[in-house]
Design a protein around this nucleic acid. Sequence first.
DNA 1: CCAATCAGGACTGCGATGGTCCGGTTATGA
DNA 2: TCATAACCGGACCATCGCAGTCCTGATTGG
Lengths: 154, 154
Amino acid sequence: MLRLSKLTDYAVVVLVRLDTGLEVQTSPGIAASIGIPEPTVAKVLKSLSSAGLVTSQRGARGGYRLARVLEDIPVGEVIAAMDGPIALAACVDGSVTECESRSLCPVRGRWDPVNDAIQSALSGISLADMREAAIPAVFRVPHSAVLEPSDVSR
Amino acid sequence: MLRLSKLTDYAVVVLVRLDTGLEVQTSPGIAASIGIPEPTVAKVLKSLSSAGLVTSQRGARGGYRLARVLEDIPVGEVIAAMDGPIALAACVDGSVTECESRSLCPVRGRWDPVNDAIQSALSGISLADMREAAIPAVFRVPHSAVLEPSDVSR
DNA sequence: CCAATCAGGACTGCGATGGTCCGGTTATGA
DNA sequence: TCATAACCGGACCATCGCAGTCCTGATTGG
Ligand code: FES
Ligand code: FES
């Protein structure tokens, strides 16, 4: 299903929500504003913080703030922060899974090109793009048609 | 981790292995040649068969055969056959997950562009590409040096 | 000193995945 | 005709990762 984890979905929501003019926002505040349980939001924010996507301010009147503007955060980086490095198959890089029959295996570790393709696809879309997309289409200027509608089908 | 299921990995191995001049190959035979337990290979082949990627011949001297040449099988199709349709987030298309706070959610169902990007990246790589990469460099005529031998190692 | 907030774990329940197995059906060929 | 080889379509169970919660510190502001 190529499904990414729910936490990653939350992370995008949280990051987009953080993009306001406010100085810092607290974890309970964000949780309330997007309707996700507070402990879960806190967990997401902690992960994002250690990944360097948000900066934190401890103590009373503390909170979180975006480390960069949304335009500079590719969605692939968010996924990597939440789900770990993107590695489709077991035999890509330093994964410890031995793949016992490596000598017989006709594809060996050759998911790499696929991996790279996804990687670059994910690097080309920023969180700002996802935020923009959420705005009803009438409000958007069609600045760039990056994707062909033709092969979007199937 | 964006990890795809192990069964999908096997599927690619099996499909590439099916690409020989032989008429049909049996499930036990394939299992033996790639060193994966037979029942598992059988399961994979059944899925591939119902997805129309391989054709089957029942009865004694039966077996499986590729429905198309490897060049015409994009890797995305294999993934879809094994793991179901590619849908990154919960709120993409007709998934039943309600996403209760949809009115508040700042990204709404907007994983769609990301989804499409991955989709098209996965459609651009065929199984033939993966097979080529797997053959040891010495055996390949350098008709096209698509891959550096350096990173074949690992 | 006290309150608010983040940090970093441990912990648990659930669901999907992987792997196996079994009874049934179809085709070959002796 | 009959035995055999292979696929078909399930059911079945163990395991593992994920989602979600909670608890104990550390840090800052009032
Ligand atoms: S699946 Fe790991 S080496 Fe082939
Ligand atoms: S996460 Fe589903 S609508 Fe926002």
